[in-house]
Design a protein around this nucleic acid. Structure first.
Length: 851
RNA sequence: GCCGGUGUGGCGGAAUGGCAGACGCGGCCGACUCAAAAUCGGCUGCCCGAGAGGGCGUGUGGGUUCGAGUCCCACCACCGGUACCA
């Protein structure tokens, strides 16, 4: 025990034991009439112990949960585990153990650590996504999406991680690398299950407007970019010798007259089809090219400064607007899975098309005169020294100077249409409107939107996930597992080879794989893939509302009571992945009539990353500090205070800057204040020292809005000021018996409870209470104590502060100006200069000018 | 390339257009102590000055204003997202 008597570890153990016995932070039931708040931290993945990143996240969650409890709300603050996923499987392969054992052992460590951290959870609502009781509802959800046409299978080029031997969703590819293991991702053509998130693209984009002001700007922007809506037109091109037209998407249909060739993605079905109708020589060259392209990693393919490559297919498309024959090329700068996998190439006005045209000597036709004025603005004419008008455009380049074929720079700017028949002279906007109209009337095109967002690929060739509840019949049909046969449980891992080898390990569970067609009873086989674990986390916040319910995924009635989540707190790394998927599934559930809201998280708090040694922590880099055995040595309260005080929530924190020694000193000071109080709980506050009371009441008044703005570091600073002021009052002011000292100590305990609940409860007990301060209502500040009698006014002369005056708070303007003019320092600073202008803003500022 | 963010002491960071640097870390000095730890008190942006005081200061340059860290314009640096998305 430290010499001064404050034994943080003993205090924390004492209160943790009481909380375990009393379970005081359960959410109120149906009879609870208080207003409700649903506070949720993004649930953890149970790899190893909790670490400093969790310490930050769940400290913030607890601040918010405890705050609303003090403010008189019925708070729901549950915890669970996102317990399916690759790391468990990889650990199991490494150790030859069952992923279950590893996962549930880690969950037990997490639970212990959360208890030791003093988090105020409702422990009655725990869930693990790897329990059959949970994942059966993933399967239920899958069936509902399947029924609605939102879950479907298709063959498509997919992201493939050669290390983990599984496919990845687009969102899980980070700069061409696997989000999990960092291996370079390659493209592979596979038949997989998808969720049709693109059908919700417009709503996912437009509803972001509702979140404006409640979600971090950054996340909203990232989601907008990720969805990436482009507006333009679909245009149908006849292909010579091909039975049906091919559609392309363009954001610049106005430049249709400038199309000089046509490009298809080499890995698209269309390319293969067109090549197959060509000569043997072309077929061979196409095949070579395709193989080369498929060997490329995403990194190689995405590098934009790479020279353009492609092969001519010896086929021709017909421009629907002017009948021109456009040679068709296959080139990897066109993506198979965006738009229609084919483009009309307008090299004069698109840099990529121009690069390709120059590489293969294809024609370039300018159809927009970017030197033509596009606004009606009248140019300002300046005169030169002789008084002759200067032509402001004299030095501007002519259209001829800008010829893209020569300069290599495409003309992407605005201008007026030329060489474009009926479009000539029109601006871009008018030209687009006109051409879309013409195409629509001719039946060869229409206005269209396209999205960067792709459908969500949810199949995974791994063991430790939710089995996809579909059955493949011997005659090639795919039928759902009936609801009454759910959950379709994972087989025992024992005897299964979990090592990644490109197909799901479940395929090796012969007995498990064998099933029957539920309609006919004929032998059939199960789908061997499991679901992306982001399916699990896309709706878990609803399961917390009725966690044990065997009859339904969640209760609509409970959802009406509690959801959506009021405060959702987690790392910015989920800005797109989890948060986009959860928004999507929420909208699907809304469309199913099961919930009455369309956005899952009303406010979102994103904390920054915790860095160690200047870099993002990760297990592989070894810069990850875990709870056990030493992170919590300074005491849970000290760690939590240090984190809250380290800086703004949304900023990254260097773990080196998290000073637990300062926090420990502060907690001991706060505790000692409570120890020093000699008055009884029934003192009359009004008789206390007014100066100290003002400090107390200012904190009571300011802290709520600071917490709501997530300025936790400022609240801690203000709390330190209160403790310092109380210390001073005890030692050299009002003395330990003054009611204001008790009042300050009690307020300290209550605000401190947000950050350091063990110390706060101990103080509360020392102060003579036998209830939990964590459940005690916030005291209202006394408004009369919030107004100052005197304030400090500053006197500025020519913008510089030359004097300060102590003045009555309600001083009149002329009185303040008179005081300022008479002040000796002001007179001296003026040094005889005349005041030419005086601005007086009582009671804070007097500003004199002398020129 | 495109989209966005951030630049404040030795460090983490405060600051409704009104005393820049709250609060803390670190540092220096002192009290207590045989001594140390703990605790308590004082000082701590830079420069000049013994002092009183003065000058300079929020990435750089301009602007608006009685007054700018805060608003506007341009630039520099760093960070994040995204990237053959037609």
């Amino acid at each position: 025990m430290p010499a001064d008597g404050f034994d943080a570890l003993a205090i924390q153990e004492k209160w943790q034991r009481r909380w375990l016995e009393d379970d005081p932070f359960r959410a109120g039931g149906a009879d609870d009439t208080r207003p409700r708040k649903y506070v949720l931290g993004m649930f953890p993945y149970p790899s190893g112990d909790l670490h400093m990143g969790h310490a930050e996240n769940y400290a913030y969650v607890d601040i918010v949960a405890r705050f609303w409890r003090h403010r008189g709300y019925n708070v729901l603050n549950p915890i669970g585990w996102d317990s399916f996923g690759l790391p468990a499987e990889n650990a199991a392969i490494q150790r030859g153990a069952d992923p279950r054992e590893w996962t549930y052992a880690n969950i037990e460590r997490h639970k212990r650590s959360f208890r030791e951290y003093g988090s105020s959870y409702d422990w009655s609502r725990i869930l693990h996504t790897s329990d059959p009781e949970y994942y059966r509802w993933n399967q239920w959800l899958f069936q509902r999406l399947y029924e609605r046409g939102l879950a479907y299978r298709k063959e498509s080029p997919v992201n493939w991680c050669p290390n983990d031997q599984t496919v990845l969703a687009n969102e899980q590819v980070v700069e061409g690398h696997c989000e999990r293991c960092g291996a370079e991702v390659v493209k592979k053509k596979l038949t997989q299950w998808y969720f049709k998130i693109t059908e919700y693209a417009d709503r996912l984009l437009d509803d972001l407007n509702q979140l404006e002001g409640f979600w971090p700007q950054k996340v909203i922007r990232m989601q907008r970019n990720w969805i990436g809506r482009s507006v333009g037109a679909d245009i149908d091109f006849e292909i010579e010798g091909h039975h049906e037209p091919v559609t392309v998407f363009s954001t610049r249909p106005d430049t249709l007259h400038g199309a000089t060739f046509f490009v298809v993605a080499p890995d698209s079905d269309l390319a293969a089809e067109l090549a197959s109708g060509s000569s043997a020589d072309v077929r061979a060259r196409f095949q070579d090219y395709l193989e080369r392209v498929q060997r490329e990693t995403e990194i190689e393919r995405q590098s934009t400064d790479r020279p353009k490559t492609g092969v001519f297919l010896d086929r021709y498309a017909i421009n629907p607007i002017n009948g021109e024959r456009l040679p068709i090329w296959a080139a990897d700068y066109v993506l198979a899975d965006y738009g229609h996998g084919a483009v009309m190439a307008v090299p004069a006005h698109d840099q990529r098309d121009l690069d390709f045209a120059r590489a293969f000597d294809l024609p370039v036709k300018v159809v927009v005169d970017t030197t033509a004025p596009i606004t009606g603005a009248i140019p300002v004419i300046e005169l030169d020294e002789d008084g002759t008008p200067i032509d402001p455009t004299a030095d501007d380049p002519t259209l001829d100077d800008l010829d893209p074929a020569r300069t290599g720079v495409a003309l992407t700017g605005e201008g007026r249409m030329i060489n474009s028949g009926s479009l000539d002279g029109l601006s871009k906007r008018n030209a687009i409107a006109r051409i879309v109209d013409e195409l629509e009337r001719a039946g060869t095109g229409r206005a269209a939107k396209s999205y960067r967002l792709r459908d969500w690929l949810i199949s995974r060739q791994r063991f430790w996930g939710t089995p996809i509840p579909m059955i493949h019949t011997d005659d090639g049909r795919i039928v759902p597992v009936p609801d009454d046969q759910l959950p379709l449980q994972l087989p025992d891992a024992e005897g299964l080879d979990l090592a990644p080898r490109g197909t799901s390990p479940l395929g090796g569970a012969e007995e498990w794989m064998r099933t029957v067609d539920p309609a006919t009873g004929e032998p059939a086989r199960r789908d061997p893939d499991t679901m992306d674990t982001f399916v699990d986390s896309s709706w878990y916040f609803l399961r917390f509302l009725s966690p044990g319910d065997p009859a339904e995924a969640f209760s609509s009635a409970q959802a009406d009571r509690w959801a959506p989540v009021d405060s959702y707190i987690g790392g910015v790394e989920h800005a797109i992945l989890h948060l986009l998927y959860a928004r999507f599934i929420t909208k699907v559930l809304f469309d199913m009539g099961l919930i009455e809201f369309t956005e899952p998280f009303s406010t979102l708090i994103n904390q920054g990353m915790v860095l160690l040694g200047g870099s993002k922590m990760s297990k592989s880099k070894g810069n990850l500090v875990e709870f056990a055995p030493s992170m919590l040595d300074p005491g849970a309260d000290a760690v939590r205070v240090a984190i809250a005080f380290a800086g703004p929530v949304e900023d990254d924190i260097n773990w080196e800057d998290v000073s637990t020694t300062g926090a420990q000193k502060f907690l001991a000071r706060a505790w000692r204040v409570a120890m020093d109080v000699t008055s009884d709980p029934d003192v009359v506050w009004a008789e206390g020292d007014p100066a100290l009371r003002r400090v107390t009441h200012r904190l009571l008044a300011d802290a709520p809005s600071l917490v709501e703005q997530t300025k936790f570091n400022v609240v801690v600073a203000r709390l330190m000021e209160l403790v310092n002021a109380t210390r001073k009052a005890i030692d050299s002011g009002a003395g330990p018996a003054d009611p204001a000292v008790r009042e300050a100590a009690e307020a300290t305990a209550m605000v401190l409870d947000l950050f350091a609940p063990h110390t706060a409860e101990e103080m509360w007990e020392i102060l003579g209470y036998d209830s939990y301060v964590g459940l005690f209502p916030w005291r209202s500040p006394d408004p009369t104590l919030l107004v100052e009698d005197t304030v400090t006014a500053v006197v500025q002369i020519d913008g510089k502060v030359r004097a300060t005056l102590e003045v009555p708070a309600r001083i009149a303007q002329d009185a303040l100006e008179a005081m300022a003019r008479e002040d000796a320092r002001v007179v001296r600073s003026l040094a005889g200069r005349q005041i030419t202008r005086a601005i007086v803003r009582p009671p804070k500022v007097v500003s004199f000018s002398t020129h």
